[in-house]
Structure formats: C-alpha cells, structure tokens
Design a protein around this nucleic acid. Structure first.
Lengths: 150, 150
DNA sequence: TATTGTTATACTCTATAACTATA
DNA sequence: TATAGTTATAGAGTATAACAATA
C-alpha cells in the first residue's frame, strides 16, 4: 500500500500550479498590452480563425460556459471589436463577428502571442513540445470523461 | 512571419483547459467524499508530510497566498482537523498542526488520491509521466520567472 | 521600521438557475 | 415543450491593501 504522497509530486497539484503560473503571466500581459481578459482573447482568436459564430459555437470552441462567453463578448461589443449579425435561419440566435478594428487588434496580438508561447517553450525540443501537447490533451480527455473518481 | 494561431493548439490555452478539467473533477470528488476544498486538502497533505508549520511556511509549500491559506485553515480549525500551537521562538507567529482526526482524515484520503492520480495517468508509461512532470515544472519555472513577456 | 498574522475588499472564473423570445 | 440567448446570483480562486501585534 503506497501511503506516501508529497503534494509537490502530485500531478493534479503540479498541473494546477503550472497552469496558474502561466495564466497569471499571460493574463497580466494581455491586460497591460491590449486591455483584454483571457476570455476575450479566446473569442477573438477563434473568430479570427473560423469567422462569425454563434455564442453557442463559441462556448464549444473556447471551452467556456455561456455566462463567461456573454461577459467577454459584451466587453468586446462595447469596445467595437465585435458586432452582432442576425441569423436568418433562426430568429433566436445571432452570430458574433470581428469588426475591422477587432481584426486589426487580432493581427497585433498574434505575433506577440506566438512569441510568448515560444519563450515559455524555449529550450524544449520539438518532440518535447508535441509530447506535452499530447499528454495535456489526454489528461483533459480523461478528466472530462467524468466519473473516473467518485 | 507565422501569423497562424489556432486557439486549441496554443499552449497556454491547452494547459489552462487541461488543468481546469482535472481540477474540476478533483474538486468535486473531494467535496463529495470528504467535504474538503482543494486548498484545504493541500494544507492537510503538507502538514501530514512535514509536521506542524507556520501559515507562512504553508504559503510557500502550497503555492497559495496568505488569504487563501487563512481561509482554508479556518475551515479546518472549525472542524477540529487542525489546531494552533504557540511558537516559542516568535510571539507573532504560531504553528498549525493536524489533530488526531485530521491525521485520520489524511489517512483516509491518501489511497483515494493516489488511485485518482493513477486513473488520470492510466495508459501512460513511466517515462511519459516523468516527462510530463518535468515539462510542467519547467513551464512553471519559466512563467514564474516573471518578465518573460511584457 | 519590518514582519506575521489577520481582516477587508474586489475582480475573475466557474456554476446554477431563472427568465425571454423564438422554434 | 424545447432551445438560444440573456440576466442574476453565488462560491471559489486570486490579488491588493490595511491593520494589530510583535520583532
């Protein structure tokens, strides 16, 4: 029976601590340089990549719930970075789209975001990075899998 | 100039999403089975491993700030899982220690916590797990390194 | 004056539920 | 009735500041 457990070696703790350190760094930088919250950046990144989407689709793409997507979108709408487009197929819904200034902002952010990621990953081999990505996806999938532990 | 960026391939996002999925699963389980918050579990784990510590030492060990440690400790004190010991060396300070029931609770949690971790890591090789741990530590260190990106 | 513990405050993230308007 | 969007509320995590007691 392994009854030893050191917190600093416990994976859920490691993951949380690492994620928090990275998120904090990123969040501060986004705030300072672009006046954006991470949730807002997520919307911009997805919309720039995929074009106009409904709030619901944005929830799925960004892995955020409706409330958080709404709040993030509202801030961007207020700043004129997003606009609403009516959805002819369903009167209940609409699509959110980047405005010109939203697109411009996205273009400003991307190089910086990539450089930021590169610095975090500096010193790692291509193989390491791929492995990390794979392992994180796997953890996410298993955790989202639900009733692993009850 | 790489101007492509897919959110789902962006490391800070991957890390955040994976961490959140794991944390949510763990948090629910701790709550259901032991009535503990993650922050409280961290205190218990560290105190069981290292013996009585000051709140300040607990901040360092758990990577949580004073406020969070205080809130977590208060809940455990209220439930009689922790007790305060005066610190003869410094009248300003005191040490927090597990009570008998705190120690008992810890003994109940550990096997479950290890099983939980094992299920999350199921299917991964020993080498994968070590690699993941190393990579997470590295990310944490680089992110905590501070002014990587301003 | 600096530090330890403590309390207060606030904002973000996360979660839930309820409400509206369409379907 | 069901769904999409919206609003309200609340708990937990995170951060900052201020205060009291002690060093």
């Amino acid at each position: 029976m392994g009854t030893e457990l050191r917190l600093q070696d416990y994976l859920p703790h490691r993951l949380s601590v690492a994620s928090n350190a990275v998120s904090r760094l990123i969040a501060r930088s986004y705030e300072l340089r672009f006046g954006l919250k991470i949730a807002q950046w997520r919307l911009i990144a997805v919309l720039a990549d995929e074009g106009p989407l409904t709030p619901q689709a944005l929830c799925a793409r960004t892995i955020m719930d409706k409330v958080r997507v709404m709040r993030a979108a509202q801030g961007l709408l207020d700043r004129g970075l997003l606009s609403r487009q009516p959805n002819p197929e369903d009167g209940r819904s609409h699509r959110l789209a980047l405005t010109r200034s939203g697109t411009r902002l996205h273009r400003d952010i991307v190089p910086w975001a990539l450089a930021c990621e590169a610095r975090l990953l500096q010193g790692l081999t291509r193989a390491d990075i791929l492995r990390l990505d794979t392992l994180l996806r796997r953890l996410q999938k298993r955790a989202a899998g639900a009733d692993i532990v009850k």
